[in-house]
Amino acid sequence: MEAIRFGIIGGSGLYKMEGLSETREVLLDTPFGKPSDAIVTGLLDGVPVAFLARHGRGHSTLPGDLPYRANIWAMKSLGVDYLISVSAVGSLKEVMAPRHMVLPDQFIDLTRHRAGTFFGDGAVAHVSMAHPVCAALSEVLAESHADCGLPAAALHRGGTYVCIEGPQFSTLAESRLYRSWDASVIGMTNMPEARLAREAEIAYATLALVTDYDCWHEGHDAVTAEIAIANLMHNAANAQNVLRACVRRLAANAPASKAHDALKQALVTPPAAMPEATREKLLPLLRKYR
């Protein structure tokens, strides 16, 4: 199969990629289990793309139960080296209103029960996460938003995404605490996704779709899934257009990314010293270092 460089992970409300032609479903069984769903590959305006519904097309998997390692391993094995993560989030800032989009550049990881690394079993690596988002890919997303003629004020560049375990929404005390940290948005799915993408040397960026103000905001003391999904679906068409414009831009001139060499200075255990079974399990990640 020809390598597919551009991948999209769709979150709540984004279960398929409109405009994808010549589609086929790729069913993979990775060393870390099965991905959330079949990966749908096809052409988007003539450009090969791989799409995965993060929660499954029927939205049947909780954030804490998602097979994050299998999802990223599967994308990497297909050749993906630019990955756009679309995620529903709550806003922690007044200016980031429901139905706006945010391009966060930092994360605070408050998850507790998720496997967050590909390494172990005789293989040690410590990738840098100081800048967890590929700035170059995020810039392409911002330019793509402008390409679509969407209001500039409805896009916010930069900010911190607090990732909680869920599946419950925040308490009022928690929401106020995150605001005191100057965090921007809150969600449940981008960690350890971003960590794993960095270990896999994939340029990763988040397109966050604001659904609500979380419970800190007057009039939003009780966030409901119904409100969140209604706002998300309103934004889904705009998100599809931004993604399509982004893929066109990437195909024309994919930017260099520091993420593509993330393991170069991070591998502590030389591949030759790893147990054979571990090397095989990590082959998509280690291929250029063997």
Rank of each mutant, 00 (worst) to 15 (best):
L110C: 03
A142G: 10
V47D: 05
A70K: 02
A252V: 03
D147C: 10
G10E: 10
L14H: 11
Y204K: 10
V133Q: 07
E199D: 12
A88C: 05
P35N: 14
R279W: 11
A205T: 05
I39F: 08
E25T: 09
S85K: 08
L267H: 02
A53K: 00
A125M: 10
L27D: 14
K288G: 00
W73L: 02
C215A: 11
P67F: 13
A152R: 13
E139M: 07
A123M: 09
S60V: 04
K281I: 01
S36K: 13
T278E: 04
D65K: 12
A203C: 14
K258L: 11
F32I: 02
A254T: 13
E199V: 08
V185Q: 03
K16W: 07
E218I: 09
I8Y: 14
A256G: 14
M274K: 06
W216L: 01
L267K: 04
R157N: 09
P255Y: 01
A256R: 11
A256S: 13
Y213V: 00
G90I: 02
A272K: 07
A142R: 00
C163R: 01
L207N: 01
I8T: 13
V86D: 06
A256C: 09
A203W: 04
H126V: 10
P48Y: 00
A205W: 09
R279Y: 11
A237N: 05
M233V: 13
N253P: 00
L207H: 00
I39W: 09
V247Q: 03
A88M: 13
G158N: 02
L267S: 01
E165Y: 06
H131A: 10
A3Q: 05
A200Y: 11
E22M: 02
L155F: 06
S144M: 00
A135Y: 08
V242H: 02
T23Y: 07
D37L: 15
G33N: 04
R157F: 08
A135Q: 14
E280A: 14
V127H: 14
M96H: 15
M188H: 07
Q265W: 02
A3M: 01
D147F: 04
E199H: 10
T41A: 12
L141S: 06
